[in-house]
Design a protein around this nucleic acid. Structure first.
Length: 954
RNA sequence: GCUCGAGUGGUGGAAUGGUAGACACGUUGGACUUAAAAUCCAAUGGACAUUAGUCCGUGCGGGUUCAAGUCCCGCCUCGAGUACCA
C-alpha cells in the first residue's frame, strides 16, 4: 500500500472536525498556551501559497505545545469589514455582506485543506453584529474616559466632572486639546450643559473635533497616516489632500510615552520595535513663546495679545534666530498678517491648501514662502524678528510654527538664503556661509549673551532654566505621533453608537448595543456629500423606544440623527485577541475568569506591515482596557514573530520592439525589447516555455514568431511580489492536489528561515514530497507493502539497534531545540537525515517508529495521524506526549580529534568521547605526534573543546 | 538623508568563536526498464595533481584571538521602513 495523501488528508480533516480535536477548554488543569495568528481580510482572490506561511509556523508551534501537555488556544477568524467588498458593491450592487460571506467560505475551505489545528468554535468575524457590538462598547468606554497625568492612567469622565465642579480645570493634570480655555469651578457650574459637553470633548479619549485630515477624493474618505504611502493612498494609489473636517479621533497621544516604554518589556523583533519607536518619534527640547509686537497702524489685531508658540530641540541656538516661520495652516496666520501683506499671504495659503501631499513631496527642494509683515519679539534680546509663512513647516508637528535658526538648521538656511534673510552665526570657529552647522556634539556657542562658550548640553539646560524663570517657555517632550482619525466615510464598517442632540454627540446606552448597520439603497455618498449611511431609509435614534427608526420621523422631539460615518479597518482588530478567550459571551466582552485564565497571547505571528497600524493601535486599546481593570496585563502579546513574505518568481518573454517577434532569453542581446509577463504555469523546471500553451492562453501570440535558442524557448525569471497581474501566483489548492497538504506545510518551512523573505519555487517541493514517501515506506514492508512494525525480539527488551536508537534520540534533541528557536527549516533537514539513516538500516522497530510519528506530527499532521492509527492507537496523535530525549543513547565509542599547534600543524587521534577535559589534554600531550611536532618546545597550555578540536598553544 | 536588516557553491540555504557549504533543488554519470515515469546508487565550491594530496575560498580593507562566515573598526553593494519632524 503506497502513500495516498489525498485520501489520508481528507480522512483526518473530517475526523478532527467531527471530534472537535482542537477545541480549547477555558477550564483545564493544564498550563495554558495561547498561539495567535493575524486574522485575514477575506479578499476575493483567495489564498496564494504565501499567505499560509505564518499559519503553518504557528500551527507547528501550537501542535508541539499540545504534545508538551499544554492547554493550547489557537483560534482563527476574519477581519471582514473592508474596502474591496464595498467597492465591489458599488460596481455590482451586490451587498458587501454577501461578497464577504462567499469569500470567507472560500478562505475557510482553503484553510481547512491545509490541516490547521484551529479551534473554529471560537471563530470571530469583525462584521458580525455579535462581534462589533463589543467594538462599539469599547468606543463608548473610551468616550467616557479621560487621561489623568497625575496617576498616568485613564479614568472615568465622571471623576473629571467632579474635579471641575470643585476647582475648575486649572489644577487638573489631564491630557487635553491645547487650546482648551481655563475656567474656574464657578464658571464651570454656570456653563450650559451644551458648553460643558463641548468642553469635555477636549478631554475624552475619543472625541469629535475639527481636524486637518488626509482626504482621498477618489476613495471618498479620510485616511489615517499609516494608510498613506508616499503621499498616495495605500489602497489604489490615489492622491491625498489636506482638508479640515469634523471627525472622530482617538487620543492615542495620551499613551505615547507608555507605548514607547512598553516596548522594552516585550519580546518583539527589533526592527518592529524600532519602527514603532520611530513612529512615536519622541524628541526632547523646549517650548518657547514669542510675543507678536504691536503692529503699525493697519494691524487687524489691535489690542490683542498675540503670541506664537514654537517647539525646538535646539533651545541652545535661540540667539541665532533671525526669523520665524508658520505653517500655511497655522491658526494665527490671518491674524498676524498686516494689511499690506494680506493679499500675498492669502494667495500663498490658498495655493498651499490646493497642493496635494504628493505634489508637496515631489518638489521638496522648491523653496516657497511669504512675509506676513508682522514681527515677533525675541525673548532675550528683545529684537524684532520677522514672521514668515512657509510650507516647509508642517502644521501637524509640534506647534506648527518654528523659530528659524539658519546657521543651525539646513532648511532654515536654505529659506534664509532664498529670501535674503540675514544668517547670524552663533557657533565658535565654524563657517556657515555655505551650509548650516548641525553637529550637536561639537557645538561651542558664541554671540549668545549668557551662554557663550558652553556646549550643547550645558547651553540647553541654562536656556530652559531662564525660559522657565521668565515664564515664557519650558522644557518639553514632543511626540511625532498624532491622534488617530477614527471616522471613515464608508458603508462597510462598524457604525458608531452615537446620535446627535443639538449637534453634540451622545452615546447610545450600552444595553441597546449592537447598533446594527442599516441597509442602504446605494453604497456611494449621498448627493449632499454625506457618507453612504445617509442613504439608509431608516437611520435615526428614538430615545424613547431605544431603537432605530425611520428618518422621516426626525421632527419628533425624541428622535435624533445618528452618526453617518463608520469606524476604520483597525477598529475591529484592536481587541479581537481578547474576545477569542470568550467569544460566545453575550453578556460581557469576555468574562473575568476567561481573561484571568488566558491572560495574554504567548506567541503572535504576523506580518511586519502592520507595525505602525494594527500593532500600535491594539497596544493602545489594551493599555486603555488595562487602566479600566478589564484585562490583567498591559501588553497583550508576550512574543511576536514577523514571518517573511513568500515572493513569486515571474516569467517573461521578450518582444522585440515594434514587431511580433518573441525572443528566447539568450537571443535578446542588445536588441530593444519589451518584457512581457507570462503565466508561470506555462514554464517547466528548466525555464522552458510551452509555446502551444502560451498561444492558447493568449490568442494575440497566435501568429507571433518565436526565436528559440537551440531547440528551446527559454523565459527570463525575476523575483517579485505574488500578484494576479504578474501571473506568478501559485495557489495552495494546486499544490495540495499534486503533492498534498503535508508536503506543502513541510516545504514552506523548508524554504528558509521563517522571518526572511524568500521566493517560491515549486520545483523544489519534490524533495520534501519524496521524504514523506520514504517516511511512509519505513512503516510498510513486504511484497505488498503492508503495514509492518516489529515489536521487541523474544527474550529482549528492545528490538531497536543501538544505531537506530542513537539516530532517534539525536533527532529528538535537534527537533526540540529547533522548534524552541523557531528554526523550522532545519528541523525538516533533521527529519530527512533521520529517515535516510533508518531506511538504510531497514529499521522497523516500534520503539523507534512510534516516537518518530509524534516528532513529525506538528509538521505533517495527516500522515502522522494515519501512521498513529495503524500503530494501534484509538485516540488522536495530537495529544500524545512528546518523546523524551535520553542522552545515554548518544555516547559515541570514539571520535577523531584534529589537533593543531598555533593553527599550523594538524593531526588527528582517536579518543573515547567520555573522557574529561583534563584526561584528553593529558592524552594529547602524551601522544607521540605531539612530541614530534612540538620538537622540544614547551607548550603553555592545551585547549580542548570536546568533540571538536584540540589546540596546543606554544 | 535617517533607522534597521542582509551579503556563504549553479539555486534555496546549514554552521553555541572550533574540520565552512548540513539538508534539498538542479546538473552529470550509473543501475533497473523495450522505452518513459517512478525508484535506487555515485559525483558535484574553485585551481593544480587526479593515487596519496596540495593550495585558495563566506562582499572589500584592517583588527582582536591559539582559532573568525560568526566578535570589533572602516568601507562597498543590495533590501526594507521612514522622511521638509524644527
Amino acid at each position: 500500500m503506497s502513500y495516498h495523501f489525498r485520501e489520508i488528508e481528507a480522512k483526518w480533516q473530517r475526523y478532527w472536525a467531527e471530534n472537535g480535536t482542537f477545541k480549547a477548554s477555558n477550564d483545564s488543569q493544564k498550563e495554558k498556551f495561547y498561539v495567535l495568528d493575524m486574522f485575514p481580510y477575506p479578499s476575493g482572490a483567495g489564498l496564494h501559497v504565501g499567505h499560509p506561511l505564518g499559519y503553518i509556523a504557528s500551527d507547528i508551534y501550537a501542535r508541539y505545545k499540545r504534545h508538551k501537555g499544554f492547554n493550547v488556544l489557537h483560534p482563527m477568524g476574519f477581519d471582514s469589514f473592508g474596502l474591496p467588498a464595498e467597492q465591489y458593491a458599488i460596481q455590482t450592487g451586490q451587498h458587501p455582506a454577501i461578497t464577504t460571506e462567499t469569500n470567507i467560505n472560500r478562505y475557510r475551505e482553503q484553510l481547512d485543506r491545509l490541516g490547521f489545528s484551529f479551534d473554529w468554535s471560537r471563530e470571530v468575524r469583525t462584521s458580525d453584529p455579535s462581534y462589533y457590538k463589543w467594538t462599539q462598547w469599547i468606543f463608548i468606554q473610551l468616550f467616557n474616559s479621560w487621561y489623568n497625568r497625575a496617576t498616568d492612567k485613564a479614568a472615568p469622565i465622571g471623576e473629571l466632572v467632579a474635579m471641575f465642579e470643585k476647582g475648575g480645570n486649572a489644577t487638573v493634570q489631564a491630557v487635553s486639546d491645547d487650546d482648551t480655555p481655563q475656567f474656574s469651578s464657578r464658571e464651570w457650574n454656570n456653563f450650559t450643559s451644551a458648553q460643558q459637553q463641548q468642553l469635555l470633548l477636549n478631554y475624552r479619549l475619543t472625541y469629535l473635533a475639527d481636524s486637518e485630515v488626509n482626504w482621498c477624493p477618489a476613495l471618498g474618505t479620510v485616511l489615517a497616516n499609516d494608510e498613506i504611502v508616499n503621499g498616495v493612498s495605500e489602497r489604489g494609489g490615489h492622491p491625498v489632500i489636506r482638508k479640515k473636517m469634523t471627525q472622530w479621533s482617538m487620543r492615542i497621544t495620551a499613551y505615547a510615552q507608555r507605548l514607547l516604554d512598553g516596548l522594552a518589556a516585550i519580546d518583539w523583533p527589533q526592527p518592529l520595535k524600532d519602527a514603532q519607536a520611530n513612529w512615536i518619534g519622541r524628541s526632547v527640547g523646549a517650548e518657547v513663546t514669542f510675543p507678536i509686537l504691536p503692529a503699525e497702524p493697519h494691524s487687524p489685531v489691535e489690542g490683542e495679545d498675540l503670541a506664537i508658540k514654537v517647539f525646538t530641540t535646539r533651545p541652545d541656538t535661540i540667539f541665532g534666530v533671525s526669523f520665524m516661520t508658520l505653517a500655511p495652516e497655522h491658526h494665527l496666520v490671518a491674524q498676524v498678517t498686516t494689511a499690506a501683506q494680506s493679499d500675498a499671504v492669502a494667495a500663498y495659503v490658498a495655493a498651499a491648501a490646493k497642493r496635494s501631499e504628493r505634489e508637496r513631496l515631489a518638489d521638496v527642494n522648491q523653496i516657497t514662502g511669504v512675509f506676513t509683515g508682522a514681527y515677533a519679539e525675541h525673548p532675550f534680546t528683545k529684537e524684532a524678528i520677522p514672521v514668515w509663512v512657509g510650507d516647509y513647516v508642517l502644521a501637524g508637528y509640534g506647534t506648527g510654527a518654528v523659530m528659524s535658526v539658519p546657521c543651525g538648521d539646513q532648511r532654515d538656511h536654505d529659506f534664509a538664503r532664498h529670501f535674503n534673510i540675514p544668517i547670524p552665526t552663533i557657533f565658535e570657529g565654524v563657517d556657515i556661509s555655505e551650509e548650516a552647522f548641525t553637529d550637536k556634539e561639537h557645538t561651542i556657542i558664541a554671540n549668545s549673551d549668557f551662554i557663550n562658550g558652553l556646549s550643547y548640553e550645558k547651553a540647553t539646560k541654562k536656556i530652559i532654566e531662564a525660559l522657565e524663570k521668565q515664564g515664557i517657555g519650558k522644557g518639553k517632550v514632543n511626540y511625532r505621533l498624532r491622534d488617530a482619525v477614527f471616522s471613515r466615510q464608508r458603508y462597510w464598517g462598524e457604525p458608531f453608537p452615537v446620535y446627535y442632540v443639538d449637534g453634540l454627540p451622545q452615546m447610545i446606552d450600552e444595553t441597546n448595543l449592537p447598533l446594527v448597520l442599516p441597509e442602504v439603497v446605494k453604497y456611494l455618498p449621498t448627493e449632499t456629500g454625506d457618507p453612504p449611511l445617509g442613504n439608509a431609509p431608516q437611520w435615526a435614534w428614538d430615545t424613547e423606544k431605544l431603537a432605530v427608526v425611520s428618518t422621516s420621523r426626525i421632527d419628533d422631539e425624541h428622535v435624533f440623527p445618528l452618526e453617518l460615518n463608520t469606524m476604520p479597518g483597525w477598529a475591529g482588530s484592536s481587541q479581537y485577541f481578547n474576545r477569542y478567550m470568550d467569544p460566545n459571551n453575550r453578556e460581557e466582552i469576555f468574562s473575568d475568569e476567561a481573561v484571568q485564565y488566558w491572560q495574554q497571547v504567548d506567541l503572535y505571528i504576523g506580518g511586519i506591515e502592520h507595525a505602525t497600524g494594527h500593532l500600535l493601535y491594539s497596544r493602545f486599546w489594551q493599555k486603555f482596557m488595562f487602566d479600566l481593570g478589564l484585562v490583567p496585563v498591559e501588553e497583550y502579546a508576550k512574543k511576536l514573530i514577523n514571518q517573511g513574505m513568500i515572493l513569486g518568481t515571474s516569467a517573461f518573454v521578450y518582444r522585440q520592439e515594434g514587431t511580433n517577434r518573441l525572443l528566447s532569453k539568450g537571443m535578446v542581446g542588445t536588441l530593444a525589447v519589451d518584457p512581457i509577463h507570462v503565466d508561470v504555469s506555462l514554464i517547466d523546471a528548466s525555464d522552458e516555455l510551452n509555446i502551444d500553451a502560451l498561444k492558447s492562453w493568449r490568442p494575440e501570440f497566435e501568429n507571433a514568431e518565436f526565436i528559440k535558442e537551440g531547440q528551446k524557448f527559454i523565459t527570463g525569471r525575476e523575483v517579485e511580489k505574488m500578484s494576479k497581474s504578474k501571473y506568478n501566483v501559485v495557489s495552495p489548492d494546486a499544490i495540495c492536489e499534486e503533492y498534498g497538504a503535508d508536503s506543502l506545510r513541510m516545504y514552506e518551512m523548508f524554504l528558509g528561515p521563517l522571518e526572511q523573505a524568500k521566493p517560491w519555487n515549486t520545483a523544489g517541493i519534490t524533495g520534501v514530497h519524496s521524504f514523506l514517501k520514504k517516511l511512509w515506506k519505513l512503516y510498510h514492508s513486504g511484497p505488498d507493502n503492508s503495514f509492518h512494525v516489529s515489536g521487541p525480539a523474544p527474550g529482549t527488551s528492545t528490538s531497536a539497534s543501538p544505531e537506530s536508537l542513537k539516530t532517534l534520540h539525536r533527532t529528538i534533541r535537534k527537533v526540540e531545540e529547533d522548534i524552541q528557536h523557531f528554526s523550522f527549516n532545519t528541523t525538516v533537514s533533521t527529519f530527512m537525515i533521520c529517515v535516510n539513516e533508518l531506511t538504510a538500516r531497514k529499521c522497523s522497530s516500534r520503539e523507534i517508529l512510534e516516537p518518530l510519528a509524534v516528532l513529525v506530527s506538528p509538521y505533517a499532521p495527516h500522515i502522522a495521524e494515519e501512521l498513529w492509527e495503524k500503530l494501534g492507537h484509538t485516540t488522536s496523535i495530537a495529544t500524545a506526549p512528546f518523546p523524551g530525549f535520553e542522552p545515554q543513547f548518544l555516547v559515541e565509542d570514539s571520535k577523531e580529534y584534529p589537533i593543531s599547534f598555533n593553527g599550523k600543524m594538524r593531526f588527528t587521534m582517536d579518543l573515547p568521547l567520555d573522557l574529561s577535559r583534563e584526561e584528553i589534554e593529558a592524552a594529547v600531550m602524551a601522544h607521540e605526534k605531539t612530541q614530534y611536532q612540538l620538537q622540544g618546545r614547551i607548550p603553555k597550555k592545551v585547549i580542548v573543546v570536546p568533540g571538536k578540536i584540540v589546540n596546543i598553544v606554544g
